[in-house]
């Protein structure tokens, strides 16, 4: 990479991180976290190992942004199905496909299906209408990507090789590790809509991390970075209480620490 290209890369990265940090901070402030704490949680969410690696940083941020957007719009959509929320969720799912076609497509298929009981359409014909309008943009996005990959040889996923069975076990463990605090928090939360959406997104992210790192030799931290953003979304939904800030800090610190641990323990494998 030339000096100018590297500079451009870092400028883009800094801009993306700053904007995303602003979004997370605003979300936390909206949930009545004090300024310092909101800033601290934002830093914890974004101090991810994937963002420190030039090769994966930009795509990781985009994955994190897409995951955050889907989680946020899915929660709004299930609360009320109005046109704006449908457009936002559909657009988020389409955006996820552009960031990572396989993960985006999986999310597009799994998330609306998993949320089907939360949708309030009264008849099957109306439910069908709801799904058609929800999936219209993601379906168009899939068709466009398919066209680009067939006609223009655009490839969103780089398949680079396979790892050995021994390494496989380590990678699976490492992929699940950063998500553990989030899953514990989600399991303890009342199973409200946003928790369900986040649980699905976390599962998909872990699955992608496992598949990506085992099959495509993709750096493990790449997808794990999205968990920090989802953590912010989760704690922003918590009701205000005396222990909320403490629990939030615990969750964010644990998630970040495990993310770094997983990244370090698999660094050698990822470079192999």
């Amino acid at each position: 990479m030339s000096a100018s290209a590297a500079l451009a890369h870092w400028v883009i990265l800094a801009v993306l991180l700053s904007v995303f940090a602003g979004v997370l901070y605003r979300r936390l402030r909206g949930a009545e976290y004090r300024r310092v704490r909101a800033a601290a949680f934002t830093v914890l969410a974004l101090a991810q190992p994937a963002f420190a690696v030039p090769a994966t940083a930009i795509r990781s941020i985009l994955v994190a942004v897409a995951a955050y957007a889907i989680g946020s719009t899915a929660a709004q959509f299930v609360r009320r199905q109005d046109p704006r929320r449908i457009v936002l969720l559909g657009g988020s799912l389409a955006g996820a496909q552009l960031v990572h076609p396989v993960w985006g497509t999986l999310t597009t298929i799994v998330l609306p299906l998993a949320l089907r009981h939360q949708v309030t359409a009264t008849t099957s014909a109306r439910t069908a209408g709801l799904y058609v309008s929800l999936l219209f943009i993601p379906a168009l996005s899939s068709a466009a990507l398919l066209y680009l990959s067939l006609a223009q040889h655009f490839d969103g996923v780089q398949w680079r090789g396979f790892v050995s069975p021994g390494q496989y076990a380590v990678l699976v463990a490492a992929a699940v590790l950063p998500a553990t605090p989030l899953f514990i928090a989600l399991a303890r939360a009342p199973m409200k809509i946003h928790a369900l959406s986040l649980a699905i997104l976390c599962t998909l992210i872990v699955a992608m991390n496992v598949v990506g790192s085992c099959v495509a030799a993709q750096p493990l931290a790449e997808f794990a970075a999205a968990l920090g953003a989802l953590g912010v979304l989760l704690i922003a939904h918590w009701a205000v209480s005396a222990t909320r800030d403490r629990h939030a800090a615990l969750l964010m610190v644990a998630s970040l620490a495990l993310s770094w641990t997983a990244a370090l323990m698999t660094a050698e494998l990822a470079h192999a």
Binding site: G129, S133, F136
Partner: peptide, 25 residues
Amino acid sequence: NALFAYLAMLGPYRRGWLDLSPYAL
């Protein structure tokens, strides 16, 4: 056409006529 179809699909939401939305295709 994609935009026209999508807007037509979302049009019936205010009155809850979602069963009409697929016809927007």
